[in-house]
Design a protein around this nucleic acid. Sequence first.
DNA 1: AGGTAAACGGGAGAGATGTCCCGTTAGTGG
DNA 2: CCACTAACGGGACATCTCTCCCGTTTACCT
Lengths: 209, 209
Amino acid sequence: MEQVSRVAGTVRPGGRTARVRAAVLQATQDELVEHGFQGLTMDQVAVRAGVGKTTVYRRWGSPAGLVTDLMTELADQSSPRADTGSIDGDLRANALAVHAALTDGRLGVTFEAMIAAATCDAQAANALRAFCRRRLEEWAGAVELAVKRKELPAGTDAVELVRAVSAPLFYRLVVTRESVTAEDAERSAVRALIAARAGAFAPGCPVAP
Amino acid sequence: MEQVSRVAGTVRPGGRTARVRAAVLQATQDELVEHGFQGLTMDQVAVRAGVGKTTVYRRWGSPAGLVTDLMTELADQSSPRADTGSIDGDLRANALAVHAALTDGRLGVTFEAMIAAATCDAQAANALRAFCRRRLEEWAGAVELAVKRKELPAGTDAVELVRAVSAPLFYRLVVTRESVTAEDAERSAVRALIAARAGAFAPGCPVAP
DNA sequence: AGGTAAACGGGAGAGATGTCCCGTTAGTGG
DNA sequence: CCACTAACGGGACATCTCTCCCGTTTACCT
């Protein structure tokens, strides 16, 4: 309740405070690229950002806090969903966007770190869930349009379908740690689409025999 | 090459060494249940196991090492795949088995810890990949039988299909941290099966337009 | 049984990690 | 432009993590 007013950086967010935040987030990402999440130390980030160690502890508290803030920053920059005119194109675009986010350079490293942070910190887990939820719902719009265009059965569960596109990509990245190609991503989109056309995401789909 | 002979516990694996290992793994699992992976400390495990702290460091090296060893222990105990006679039943059984492993009490906590360990330790990541690979290949046998029975199209990629069954479950557990019900698990199996029947896992499936 | 050395256990100590205090800097509102 | 105080920075200090040394226990071989 009173919590927010006690967090440093909320009363005077301009000027120095903003510069410190930018420097720290930049340093965090650099450190992630070089040492990964497990090698991310508050001390090193402070040194790299040219900022007092106390400040980093006070405002972010832990490596997970740093990554979480970095993620919210990147979330604001993420591009809107594509609209190719066909559900096939849209789902492929989604799969490729997820693939790019998970594997491309600095962004990919940050995502991996975010997932690692989520496994050991509740706040990070919430931030990751919220982020995924937002992306999922945005892309679900493409599915709903496709249903209106009669490309997909009426009642198709949009969020579940979009989820089915990215789930195999995350699975490979997190669980089996195989490298994921753009082709893998497209395959995932195509498979989800085939299932959707066959009514797998529509009501009346047999769950219990 | 000479590495193995330098690892403590390999030359005299009987008697005390075995007792120590059992006590440490037991303590590790207890600690995981109570504090999770991030709260797993070598010191506390040593105390709980009634074992010298030096011993835990010497033989396991890190929390990730503890969890990895615990996982290999559990892997040996994991039950073989089901054979219900139909691919529908087999895939459902697989989904339910995965669901049970991920959510049931002590075992579920251990799995979650293993995933956390894999995000920050290469050895743990390898162990997890190897484990998943083995389970995947075992259940792939059910798919191959189904292809022989003409339940599924010829050339269906067995491993990919089994992967598609469990991917959404892992996705929810790791990424979005939603609770996963047995019904969710069955739905996942049914959807993968629908896609497979439609040829989504068989050659000739359109990947590039 | 008895000898040998693998493996264990305790404790000291180096090093990293996180906290606290308090003086200094610089946004912000008047 | 000035006063007020949020936010920062440096450094001392407590704490935890991990390693090392060396004496003790005990599994394994003959």
